[in-house]
């Protein structure tokens, strides 16, 4: 359905997207996973025809979208990372405007507004001004505005940033629901668990490149996955990290705030060596967890950094 070929985009001399290629099949949910600045938003901005690529090609249903942007624009629902709504208008007026933008009118538009507002759970607050909505409601309306015209392909750019867990769950369930109704979805996030929960296929991006792609299982398989050890430590020091790195079974190590993530190699593991390295460096260990490999772990394995570094 959508084929991205050797896509490149530079902002002055900075490589935002560096020769990436991937395919999205009809009906699937593709996740673009990566930290901030990985190039996810630039990639989807090019797919959404907001930006022009410096090199490469994007085919939508076999048509080059640079030559015929209307082909994808008419069938695309784009949910930008920021809330793209008119705060001084009501939820209803916002939906009406975006519906009309996509060519809906009359009874059909009214029906769709009713249907979508129920899906996103704002039907009881439809006549209130958007500026009076909670963050979660705004996010849901932001998504709803892209669904009115039953788009064949929906792009959601980090749609759950900065919202409460309940709204987040509602959004994730809505995306699954939309996909079930037949829409193809491209979902970007730096939340590993969201991508794991939603996506059939995943592209992991870092510094403008796709460093791995496949299903979740394929990605984990690809790094000969091992368990990872997660330590919660108060007072992490550089010397402590150095000491842990010197332990023979420690392959890679990353830390953020009070959390140290260790990728081990081999099965010959003596955990007391880690505990000793922590206590010797005046660290106070509050918990130690041994986890099965996940996408976070894949990212760590591939880049040597935690996903949210």
């Amino acid at each position: 359905m959508l084929e991205i070929m050797n896509l490149k985009k530079y902002f002055n001399k900075t490589k935002a997207v560096d020769d990436i290629s991937f395919k999205v099949e009809k009906g699937e949910i593709l996740g673009l996973l990566g930290p901030n600045g990985a190039g996810k938003s630039t990639t989807i901005s090019i797919i959404s025809t907001l930006l022009k690529a410096d090199a490469g090609k994007i085919l939508y249903k076999g048509v080059d979208i640079e030559k015929e942007p209307k082909k994808i624009q008419n069938e695309l629902g784009f949910v930008p990372q920021e809330i793209a709504l008119y705060p001084s208008l009501s939820g209803y007026d916002n939906l009406k405007f975006w519906g009309r933008i996509y060519g809906l009118k009359g009874d059909k538009l009214k029906e769709k507004i009713k249907e979508v507002s129920q899906i996103i759970g704002i039907d009881k607050r439809l006549n209130d001004k958007v500026e009076e909505y909670s963050g979660g409601m705004k996010r849901r309306l932001n998504i709803g505005s892209a669904l009115l015209h039953d788009p064949e392909i929906i792009i959601l750019d980090e749609p759950t940033v900065g919202i409460d867990p309940q709204s987040r769950k509602h959004i994730l369930d809505s995306v699954k629901e939309i996909n079930k109704k037949g829409s193809t979805v491209i979902y970007t996030s730096h939340y590993m668990e969201e991508v794991e929960y939603l996506c059939d296929k995943i592209c992991i991006m870092d510094e403008g490149n796709i460093i791995a792609k496949g299903t979740k299982e394929e990605l984990i398989e690809s790094i000969s996955a091992e368990e990872k050890i997660i330590l919660q430590v108060e007072n992490i020091t550089g010397k402590m990290i150095e000491n842990i790195k010197k332990i023979p079974y420690v392959d890679k190590i990353a830390y953020i705030e009070n959390e140290i993530t260790i990728k081990k190699k081999g099965n010959n593991v003596d955990y007391s060596e880690i505990l000793e390295a922590v206590s010797k460096n005046q660290g106070h260990l509050t918990s130690m967890d041994i986890k099965k490999p996940d996408l976070e772990f894949v990212f760590l394995a591939l880049t040597g950094r935690a996903l949210r570094d």
């Binding site: 624009q73 784009f78 930008p80 809330i83």
Partner: peptide
Amino acid sequence: NNTFQRQISS
């Protein structure tokens, strides 16, 4: 508020 970009993408 990104509504401009959204209109362009539509």
